[in-house]
């Protein structure tokens, strides 16, 4: 690590860290020579602005969908339609789970929307999706949930407005992809996220799909610089999504309780195998710009 420590320029340091990270693909030291023109046609290399606008459109598409689906879900809760509310719960969360790292930028909004009961400090108020989930599945009732549902709807509308203001750059997008996979390995894989409804696999797939979309928006930088790494990441996404296939049921997934320990272990290992190469991407896109 000594060589990493002595790197003076922030940009060079980022690349060196990537190189020290033990990637199978050697990553070149930062160079002032633009890569464009030497490795391929200029048109294949996007600008940072291209990457950001592609991903921003994806975020906004998902927050729009979140507002629409949450409205349907919370309307059912407020109307006391238990079965309908249960059916709409997991689909409503899907767009949120695809872009969660962006939502986490806005302080208290993510906990208000998505806190699990043990995330709430002593004396705090438990609100959001999981509060309603608890009532629907453990009490089999919508009683008392109308105010929570109304607040949830207001919170996702606020999120829809705020994401338009979020600062994005390609490295942040790449790190957000890793963050989404970390979400899977820390809470979805253990079945803690949707502990009452056991709809964790919906969230699982949404996190992976969201990470893949983030990756796709910055992928061209990596294809130009480190095609082997890009191919490894592409096949890693394919492997994770294929790993989920056996658990698909109708438009969604089987209950998380169906998974056997060997299934969970295999999925966890697929996530780690993908997330590590993905974590090399941010340093590359910083250099490539």
């Amino acid at each position: 690590m000594t060589s990493c420590r002595t790197a003076g320029l922030a940009l060079a340091a980022l690349v060196l860290v990537a190189a020290c990270g033990g990637s199978a693909t050697p990553i070149p030291i930062a160079s002032s020579v633009p890569v464009v023109g030497s490795t391929g046609p200029e048109a294949s290399i996007p600008t940072a602005a291209d990457a950001v606008s592609t991903y921003r459109a994806y975020i906004e598409m998902n927050t729009d969908l979140l507002v629409t689906r949450t409205k349907a879900f919370t309307d059912a809760v407020i109307a006391g339609k238990l079965a309908e509310a249960k059916a709409l719960y997991a689909p409503a969360r899907e767009p949120y789970e695809r872009i969660e790292p962006v939502a986490e930028v806005f302080g208290d909004l993510d906990p208000a929307i998505d806190a699990r009961i043990n995330d709430v400090p002593a004396g705090g108020t438990f609100t959001g999706f999981h509060r309603i989930e608890e009532a629907l599945w453990t009490k089999n009732s919508t009683a008392g949930m109308a105010p929570i549902a109304k607040k949830l709807q207001a919170d996702v509308i606020q999120l829809q407005a705020l994401v338009k203001t979020v600062d994005l750059d390609p490295a942040t997008i790449a790190n957000g992809a890793v963050g989404l996979l970390n979400e899977v390995s820390s809470s979805k894989i253990t079945g803690e996220e949707d502990r009452y409804s056991h709809t964790d696999l919906w969230d699982f797939e949404a996190n992976v799909v969201g990470a893949q979309e983030a990756w796709n928006s910055v992928k061209a930088f990596v294809v130009a610089r480190s095609p082997d790494l890009a191919a490894t990441i592409d096949s890693g996404f394919a492997a994770v999504l294929a790993g989920l296939d056996p658990f698909k049921k109708g438009d969604g997934f089987v209950s998380y309780t169906v998974l056997k320990p060997a299934d969970t272990l295999a999925l966890s290992q697929l996530i780690d195998a993908l997330a590590d190469p993905l974590s090399q991407v941010a340093a590359i896109v910083v250099t490539a710009q």
Partner: peptide, 13 residues
């Protein structure tokens, strides 16, 4: 510690 997740985090972060 979520060691695998930490090991994927950039030095700056």
């Amino acid at each position: 510690m979520r060691i695998e997740a930490w090991d994927r985090d950039s030095r700056g972060d």
